[in-house]
Computed example of a mutant assay.
Amino acid sequence: MVVFITGASAGFGRAIAKRFAQDGHKIIALARRKERLESLQEEIQECFIIPCDVCDRKGLEHHLAFLPQDYQNIDVLVNNAGLALGLEGADKCDFADWVQMIEVNIKALTSVTHLVLPQMVERRSGHIVTLGSIAGKYPYPGGNVYGASKAFVRQFALNLRADLAGTCVRVTDIQPGLSSDSEFSLVRFKGDVQKVESLYKNSNALKPEDIAEAVYWVTTLPKHININTLELMPTSQSFAPLNVWRED
């Protein structure tokens, strides 16, 4: 298979690339940081890199138009690129952070999907995987636009399923819970290592390799099986009671 992964330079994306390459699949790895992509290329075989901002639609169109012949028929698109910024309440957030999350988590994801999907429909074969989050289903303080963006991802994936009925193209939304060993929280807390360490301390959180295994599983099942959504949490994570605010 040819597997196209966005945000492939680190974290989930890098682990997903390595998991597919382990079984001999060809990888198209997209990310902004060329040096990180080159190091990935050194680790795995048959890896074509696209050093490009996922928000740059014209750049994406150019790179996809000039893929090598044996990488042109994309079998799996993994929409992994995404980010969270801040954990402040909605009245205290930096609006620029909201805009950036919308640009990457929603606009860029739909842009890449829109570019790749027609060839899958034409071939009557392919799989779109979106990396959502439990934040798209379970609200929490400070989740505001990040959680809303992941709710969009979840519904977008389900609506793709509705649109693609009869095309043989599969769609899955992977919804991880607490996950460590990636740059996600470091980006969210804008480099505050102490906050990151405090969040994950003794949590036995999910690892990028766990997410990679989930993505690999759903995409290598027999083609008559479609996993619509796959929600996974570490065993240590569960549900909080509903918050009730009481007047003094």
Rank of each mutant, 00 (worst) to 15 (best):
M1L: 12
D97H: 02
N80T: 04
L37S: 10
K201Y: 14
F156Y: 13
N202V: 09
D70I: 12
K207A: 12
F189T: 12
A84Y: 00
S238G: 13
A135Q: 07
T172V: 04
D75R: 06
Q22N: 14
L67M: 06
K137Q: 09
E42G: 13
Q45F: 14
I134N: 00
A10W: 08
E103A: 03
I49K: 05
A15F: 08
R123H: 12
D75W: 05
A214W: 11
A15D: 11
F184R: 02
V218C: 08
A151Q: 04
S111A: 03
F239Q: 06
D94F: 01
G177V: 03
S236G: 14
K223T: 15
K150E: 03
F12V: 01
L30T: 07
D53G: 05
G132Y: 05
I16P: 05
S236D: 11
S198M: 12
V2E: 05
N73P: 06
Q155V: 11
L77W: 08
S185D: 15
M101E: 01
F152H: 10
R36L: 15
L131K: 06
Y216R: 09
E213A: 15
A214E: 13
D23P: 14
I74A: 03
P176S: 09
S182L: 01
S111C: 06
R32H: 10
Y146K: 01
L109F: 06
V218S: 05
R33Q: 11
H25T: 07
A96N: 11
L232F: 12
D192L: 09
I174P: 04
E247N: 15
W245K: 09
E103L: 02
A15T: 10
E61P: 03
E88Y: 01
I102W: 00
P68A: 07
I174N: 05
V99Y: 08
G136D: 03
L117W: 12
S111G: 00
T110P: 00
R32T: 05
A212S: 10
L83F: 08
A214D: 14
A29F: 07
F4N: 02
I227V: 14
N144F: 11
A29N: 04
I106D: 00
K195H: 11
G7T: 06
C168W: 14
E35L: 15
L40C: 11
N202R: 14
R154L: 13
I227K: 04
R154Y: 09
S180A: 15
P222E: 07
G7E: 03
D181I: 08
G166D: 15
G82K: 02
Q41G: 13
N79F: 09
S180L: 01
A240Y: 07
T167C: 13
V3N: 02
T6G: 03
S198F: 10
K223P: 13
I16Q: 03
I50Y: 04
S133H: 01
F152N: 09
G136P: 03
N228P: 08
K107W: 06
L164F: 08
